[in-house]
Simulated assay, not measured.
Amino acid sequence: MTSRQEANGTWTSQFRYEDAYGRSRSKCKRGFATEADADRFERHFKARESKSLDISFLDFIELYEDDVAPQLKENTWRTKEYIINDKLVPFFGPMIMTEVTTLDAVRWQNALLKGNPRTGRPYTDTYLRTVNNQAVSIFNHAERFYKLKPNPFKRAPRIGSKIATDMSIWTKEDFLRFSSTLTGRPIYFMAFELLYWAGIRVGELLALVPDDFDLRRSELRITKSYQRINRRDVITDPKTENSVRTISLPEFLRDEVRDFAFDPPGFDHDERMFAGLTKASLSAALREGAQACGLEVIRVHDLRHSHVSLLVEMGFSVIAIAERLGHDSTDITLKYAHLLPSTQQKMGEALNGYQEADDELL
């Protein structure tokens, strides 16, 4: 690298490069805080100008972040960044992008399929698909914008599945047993009532303020989500566009919300109602309550799955359930396919009864 330190302590990056037409050019940029920052600028600039990927996977990830991160929510990028650093960099990090082969991709997949090396436990099918999709996304980006050829993941198999067959579910009776352990803990009782009976996400719960409720209509409006990022409380838009939705509340749940937050008023109209809770504290309370009444310990997010299971059992359509949860109906079908056969059986039985009724008229 050709970086140099100036008298004022800052660093300057000055170098020559070849543009897209093969002409030799010079570039100079000043004011970098560190030598590493100046060197990073040179690497990225040359890669963009020449569309050359004779750089390491680790260096390309810096380019990928510059291109992709500004277009994503901060928490979304943080999730992707964790997967990249934990699952991809240890394997692909030092490899030159143009030298990564399909066999390398398959070997990386096989290592994932062996499970978590720290715990020895296998990864879930949905997590495997998420991690694999992240790798595919990186190499597709390199192919599309930096002319990487060949793309090693084009011929690699897909691993994992979109269909979550490993989710844990509580029945209504299970949840009622659990909620009975929350006597004397009103904030936890109210939080878990909303998670189970409204099927909202944890981030949506933690962002709720009194203004989100219309008690006259018995409705809850979901318009935002809470995240804890780098020790900061961050309110973001919901997970997807479909996540902005209005949820009809059963009367008993509406009355519980009224008693908790409105009668008497316990919060300002725009004050977070569950600011005293965190994902960790909710998980701990769920585990403690489950163990106290002899239930399978599930994740907090599994209460959302349990809500779907309850709605399926009650006979609601996939489209109606998707609208309530803020999902696309296709996502619901894929994610909860294993819950739907009982509904299909009921359809078959109903059609059989309908046909038998016609036979009696003949």
Rank of each mutant, 00 (worst) to 15 (best):
257 V>Y: 00
250 P>I: 00
298 I>C: 02
275 A>F: 09
249 L>Y: 03
273 M>S: 12
268 D>G: 15
284 A>E: 10
250 P>K: 11
302 D>I: 00
270 D>K: 11
289 G>N: 13
269 H>F: 14
303 L>H: 00
266 G>H: 06
250 P>D: 06
298 I>M: 04
263 D>H: 10
294 G>P: 08
298 I>L: 01
289 G>I: 08
294 G>W: 12
300 V>N: 07
283 S>D: 11
273 M>D: 10
270 D>F: 09
251 E>P: 04
287 R>P: 05
302 D>R: 01
289 G>M: 15
250 P>G: 00
290 A>K: 02
279 K>N: 13
255 D>N: 10
295 L>G: 09
250 P>F: 00
274 F>P: 05
296 E>F: 05
261 A>E: 04
271 E>H: 03
291 Q>H: 12
274 F>M: 13
254 R>P: 06
260 F>D: 10
290 A>G: 12
263 D>V: 08
297 V>H: 06
256 E>S: 06
283 S>Q: 15
299 R>H: 13
295 L>C: 04
259 D>M: 11
279 K>G: 13
295 L>F: 04
291 Q>M: 15
252 F>L: 04
301 H>P: 08
283 S>L: 13
251 E>N: 10
291 Q>F: 07
279 K>F: 15
294 G>C: 09
259 D>V: 05
261 A>H: 03
297 V>Y: 06
248 S>L: 15
264 P>S: 11
278 T>F: 03
285 A>E: 13
290 A>M: 15
263 D>M: 07
